[in-house]
Deep mutational scan, measured.
Amino acid sequence: FACQWLNAHFEVNPDCSVSRAEMYSEYLSTCSKLARGGILTSTGFYKCLRTVFPNHTVKRVEDSSSNGQAHIHVVGVKRR
């Protein structure tokens, strides 16, 4: 389900990036709304992400508004 969900909601775009945590959060929200069992852990979800978008990269984005915490963004992917 996770791989199908990724294909339905995201697409390849080399000029874009999406927060990896936001992607997983949206996946969890969809699973909750659909009352799905067998929800992937974040590790399983990221493995699926690598399968669906094998050419993506990740980058660390520093967020000055959150006490220097960094966010991981998936580069080469955008929301549909």
Rank of each mutant, 00 (worst) to 15 (best):
F1Q: 08
F1N: 04
F1C: 11
F1K: 15
F1G: 10
F1T: 02
F1L: 03
A2L: 12
A2H: 15
A2V: 12
A2M: 03
A2P: 06
A2E: 07
A2S: 13
C3S: 03
C3V: 02
C3Q: 01
C3A: 15
C3F: 11
C3D: 04
C3M: 02
C3W: 01
Q4A: 10
Q4H: 06
Q4V: 06
Q4I: 14
W5Q: 00
W5Y: 14
W5G: 00
W5P: 00
W5R: 01
W5V: 02
W5N: 00
W5E: 01
L6S: 04
N7Q: 12
N7P: 02
N7V: 06
N7L: 09
N7S: 12
N7A: 03
N7F: 02
A8I: 06
A8T: 06
A8R: 09
A8P: 00
A8Y: 10
A8F: 07
A8K: 15
A8G: 07
H9K: 11
H9P: 00
H9A: 08
H9F: 14
F10D: 00
F10S: 00
F10V: 02
E11G: 05
E11L: 06
E11M: 07
E11Y: 05
V12C: 08
V12I: 10
V12Y: 02
V12G: 14
N13F: 04
N13M: 06
N13T: 08
N13P: 00
N13I: 06
P14R: 08
P14L: 07
P14A: 10
P14K: 03
P14F: 10
P14C: 03
P14V: 06
P14G: 05
D15M: 06
D15Y: 05
D15V: 07
D15I: 15
D15N: 01
D15E: 07
D15F: 02
D15G: 06
C16I: 15
C16H: 03
C16L: 10
S17R: 03
S17V: 10
S17L: 06
V18R: 02
V18Q: 09
V18K: 04
V18T: 08
S19F: 07
S19R: 04
S19W: 13
S19I: 06
S19C: 08
S19K: 03
R20V: 10
R20Q: 15
R20E: 15
R20C: 06
R20S: 12
R20L: 08
R20G: 12
R20I: 06
A21T: 09
A21C: 14
A21I: 02
A21Q: 15
A21V: 05
A21H: 02
A21P: 11
E22Q: 04
E22M: 05
E22A: 12
E22T: 09
E22D: 13
E22R: 08
E22P: 04
M23W: 00
M23S: 00
M23I: 07
M23F: 12
M23V: 07
M23L: 07
M23E: 01
M23Y: 02
M23K: 00
Y24I: 03
Y24L: 05
Y24S: 01
Y24C: 09
S25C: 11
S25V: 08
S25D: 11
S25T: 09
S25L: 05
S25Y: 03
S25M: 09
S25N: 03
E26S: 08
E26M: 07
E26Y: 07
E26H: 03
E26T: 05
E26L: 09
E26G: 13
E26A: 10
Y27C: 00
Y27P: 00
Y27D: 01
Y27W: 03
Y27M: 00
Y27A: 00
Y27R: 00
Y27T: 00
Y27S: 01
Y27V: 00
L28G: 07
L28T: 10
L28W: 10
L28P: 00
L28V: 10
L28I: 09
L28M: 14
L28C: 07
L28A: 13
S29M: 09
S29L: 10
S29N: 04
S29R: 09
S29K: 14
S29A: 10
S29C: 07
S29P: 01
S29G: 12
T30K: 15
T30Y: 03
T30G: 13
T30M: 11
T30S: 14
T30C: 02
T30Q: 15
T30W: 06
C31P: 07
C31M: 10
C31W: 06
C31G: 12
C31R: 09
C31Q: 03
C31S: 13
S32G: 11
S32D: 12
S32V: 09
S32F: 02
S32T: 11
S32K: 14
S32R: 12
S32Q: 08
K33L: 09
K33I: 04
K33M: 04
K33Y: 03
K33T: 07
L34I: 15
L34M: 07
L34H: 14
L34V: 12
L34N: 04
L34D: 15
A35N: 12
A35F: 04
A35W: 07
A35E: 13
A35Q: 13
A35G: 11
A35M: 06
A35D: 14
A35R: 06
R36T: 08
R36V: 13
R36P: 08
R36Y: 11
R36W: 06
G37F: 02
G37I: 08
G37R: 10
G37V: 07
G38Q: 14
G38R: 13
I39L: 11
I39D: 07
I39E: 15
I39M: 14
I39F: 12
I39Y: 13
L40V: 11
L40Y: 02
L40I: 14
L40Q: 08
L40H: 09
L40R: 09
T41M: 09
T41G: 10
T41S: 14
T41Y: 07
T41N: 11
T41H: 02
S42E: 08
S42R: 03
S42M: 12
T43S: 01
G44N: 15
G44Y: 07
G44K: 12
G44S: 12
G44D: 05
G44I: 04
G44M: 13
G44L: 09
F45K: 00
F45V: 00
F45L: 08
F45E: 01
F45G: 00
F45I: 01
Y46P: 01
Y46N: 15
Y46R: 12
K47C: 04
K47H: 05
K47M: 04
K47Q: 09
K47W: 06
K47S: 10
C48R: 04
C48V: 13
C48A: 05
C48K: 05
C48G: 03
C48E: 08
L49Q: 01
L49W: 01
L49F: 11
L49M: 15
L49Y: 01
L49G: 01
L49T: 13
R50W: 12
R50V: 13
R50E: 11
R50S: 10
R50I: 12
R50F: 13
R50P: 12
R50D: 06
R50M: 09
R50H: 15
T51Y: 03
T51M: 13
T51V: 11
T51F: 05
T51Q: 10
T51P: 07
T51A: 12
V52Q: 11
V52A: 14
F53S: 00
F53Q: 00
F53T: 00
F53K: 00
F53P: 00
F53C: 01
F53H: 00
F53N: 01
F53E: 00
F53M: 01
P54I: 06
P54V: 08
P54Q: 05
N55G: 10
N55V: 10
N55H: 09
N55F: 10
N55I: 15
N55R: 12
N55E: 13
N55M: 13
N55A: 11
H56W: 02
H56C: 04
H56P: 01
H56E: 02
H56N: 03
H56M: 14
H56T: 12
T57A: 11
V58L: 02
V58D: 01
V58K: 02
V58H: 15
V58P: 06
V58W: 15
K59R: 15
K59V: 15
K59L: 02
K59Y: 14
K59E: 15
K59Q: 15
K59M: 02
R60W: 13
R60K: 11
R60P: 08
R60V: 11
R60Q: 06
V61M: 07
V61L: 08
V61K: 07
E62G: 09
E62F: 13
E62R: 09
E62Q: 12
E62P: 11
D63V: 10
D63N: 05
D63W: 07
D63T: 06
S64R: 04
S64T: 05
S64A: 04
S64V: 05
S64L: 06
S64Q: 08
S65C: 02
S65Q: 14
S66A: 15
S66L: 06
N67E: 02
N67S: 06
N67V: 03
N67G: 12
N67M: 05
G68Q: 09
G68L: 12
Q69E: 13
Q69A: 14
Q69D: 05
Q69K: 06
Q69Y: 06
A70M: 13
A70K: 12
A70Q: 05
A70C: 08
A70E: 13
H71Y: 15
H71T: 15
H71N: 15
H71P: 12
H71I: 06
H71S: 11
H71L: 12
H71C: 15
H71Q: 14
H71M: 08
I72L: 11
I72F: 14
I72R: 13
I72D: 15
I72M: 11
I72H: 12
I72Q: 14
H73C: 14
H73D: 14
H73E: 02
H73P: 01
V74R: 01
V74L: 10
V74Q: 01
V74K: 01
V74N: 01
V74D: 01
V74I: 10
V74S: 02
V75A: 13
V75T: 03
V75I: 13
V75E: 04
G76K: 01
G76R: 02
G76L: 01
G76T: 02
G76Y: 02
G76P: 01
V77S: 00
V77F: 01
V77I: 14
V77K: 00
V77G: 00
V77N: 00
V77M: 13
R80S: 12
